[in-house]
Computed example of a mutant assay.
Amino acid sequence: MQKVSLRKVKAPASYLQDNVEEVLHFSLQGLLPAGHTLALNTTIGTLSHLTIKQDRPHMLVEQQFTTSEICVLLPLLEAYPYYCPYEILLASFNMGRVSESAVARSRQRLQEALEAGVWDQEMRPVRNVLSRTRLKTRAFGIEISSILETGYILMFMPNKYRQDPE
Rank of each mutant, 00 (worst) to 15 (best):
134 R>W: 15
9 V>P: 06
139 A>W: 15
2 Q>I: 13
56 R>G: 13
162 R>V: 04
108 Q>L: 13
47 L>Q: 01
86 Y>A: 04
11 A>T: 04
22 E>Q: 09
69 E>R: 03
18 D>W: 10
144 I>F: 00
143 E>C: 05
11 A>E: 02
32 L>E: 00
113 A>L: 11
112 E>T: 04
122 E>K: 09
98 V>H: 14
80 Y>E: 07
63 Q>S: 12
134 R>Q: 14
55 D>T: 09
133 T>R: 01
73 L>Q: 07
81 P>H: 07
148 L>N: 10
81 P>N: 08
86 Y>I: 02
133 T>M: 02
116 A>W: 07
4 V>N: 02
153 I>D: 01
78 E>S: 08
102 A>G: 06
138 R>T: 06
118 V>K: 14
131 S>T: 12
24 L>D: 08
57 P>A: 00
152 Y>L: 03
22 E>V: 10
57 P>S: 05
37 T>A: 05
32 L>C: 00
45 G>M: 07
133 T>C: 15
61 V>H: 05
103 V>F: 03
111 Q>I: 02
93 F>D: 01
62 E>I: 04
44 I>G: 01
159 N>V: 09
119 W>P: 00
29 Q>F: 07
51 T>F: 08
120 D>E: 15
2 Q>R: 10
38 L>V: 08
117 G>E: 12
5 S>P: 00
144 I>C: 02
114 L>V: 10
135 L>R: 14
37 T>D: 02
87 E>W: 05
72 V>D: 08
47 L>A: 02
10 K>T: 14
163 Q>G: 06
101 S>R: 13
58 H>R: 11
53 K>G: 00
107 R>G: 01
26 F>A: 01
159 N>T: 04
6 L>I: 07
21 E>Y: 11
159 N>D: 15
90 L>M: 10
89 L>T: 09
97 R>C: 09
150 T>K: 14
11 A>S: 11
109 R>V: 05
161 Y>E: 06
66 T>I: 03
140 F>H: 02
129 V>W: 10
54 Q>V: 05
49 H>M: 06
146 S>A: 09
116 A>Q: 15
147 I>Y: 13
76 L>M: 07
166 E>L: 08
111 Q>G: 02
31 L>T: 01
4 V>W: 11
61 V>Q: 08
123 M>F: 15
31 L>W: 01
104 A>H: 14
45 G>R: 03
76 L>R: 04
47 L>I: 04
1 M>R: 05
130 L>F: 09
67 T>R: 12
3 K>Q: 07
